[in-house]
Computed example of a mutant assay.
Amino acid sequence: MEKIIQERYVQLENIDMTFFTKKGTFEALKDVNISIREGEFISIIGHSGCGKSTVLNLIGGLLRPTQGNLFCAGREIAGPGPDRAIVFQNHSLLPWLTCAENVHLAVERVFGAKEGKAKLKQRTQDAITLVGLAHAADKRPNEISGGMKQRVGIARALAMEPKVLLLDEPFGALDALTRAHLQDELMGIMAQSGCTAVMVTHDVDEAVLLSDRIVMMTNGPAATVGEILEVDLERPRKRLQLAEDSRYNHLRSEVLKFLYERHARKAA
């Protein structure tokens, strides 16, 4: 039976987010509305302080909005849950555990009450294999590279079988070549998993390469959605071919134009 794609799989409706601090109130977001389709890859981009990570944390249930409604797969988002897994810029691996043990920890937490040890082990192995780290399963974090650590973080998130994968600048701390390699790998991983993904990034090329749509945020305070750009490039996408693709370069220019104009307004 053909899968019916939900057009409003993740829904942010009239979201306001105000932080109350000792120095007073800070209105981070104002009237944010975003609809994300099931299986879609969305990037959120904008200048520093535009509330990108705040949007991600709201979807993840780490924050509650001051006003508005949040939904995932038809249910209100009222807090963190295994249906929404987050991959941070810092991989946050436990140094005394192996790669496989770090992944297994998440698997056991989510599925341990209803599945036996053999099934849990298989889930762990499948996730490690999916990110191409079967050869490093028994290594500890200090024995692998930064890029491999980030792949373990992605494997740990996907092992939970989330409905939505949330990525907060997952490759921001990596060198350019490692970053490019992991971007290519992430495209393959997402194609296999079919997971819905929302990624925060500062990198225009990364956003255009990976995304189905790019949500471009206005400057803060009281940031909101400025524009949403449809990335109508065929998949699978090949980095070297896209470098000379006129449509790719047009989309890249549209994002840069938006960011440049926002920077000019902020400077003025």
Rank of each mutant, 00 (worst) to 15 (best):
K266P: 00
L70Q: 02
D31V: 03
L62Q: 15
H47E: 11
P170K: 00
Q6P: 07
E27F: 05
L133K: 06
G68F: 14
G153V: 05
G81A: 06
M199P: 09
N69F: 04
E108D: 11
E227D: 06
V198N: 08
T98A: 00
P162G: 02
I5S: 13
F111Y: 15
K238N: 07
M187V: 09
Y248S: 05
L256W: 13
A100R: 12
P141R: 00
R156K: 03
R64I: 04
E27A: 10
S253L: 09
I5R: 14
A100W: 06
V55H: 13
D126F: 05
T21P: 15
E185G: 04
V103H: 01
E254K: 11
E27T: 11
G74W: 13
F111I: 12
G188Q: 09
C195K: 11
C72A: 10
E185N: 06
L166A: 06
N90L: 01
R179Y: 05
L166E: 07
I5A: 10
R265N: 14
A173Q: 11
F20Y: 15
H202W: 12
R84A: 12
M17S: 05
L70V: 05
E161R: 15
Y260N: 10
G226K: 14
K266T: 03
Q6Y: 11
V198R: 06
E169R: 06
G39R: 11
L177N: 00
M216Y: 12
M148H: 03
W96H: 02
V110W: 01
L62Y: 13
L63D: 14
R75A: 08
D83Q: 08
D175L: 04
I214E: 02
D83Y: 09
L167N: 09
A73H: 12
C99L: 01
K163Y: 07
M160P: 15
T66E: 08
I45W: 08
V215F: 02
I144W: 02
G68V: 07
F41M: 05
F41D: 00
G68M: 05
L130C: 08
L62A: 04
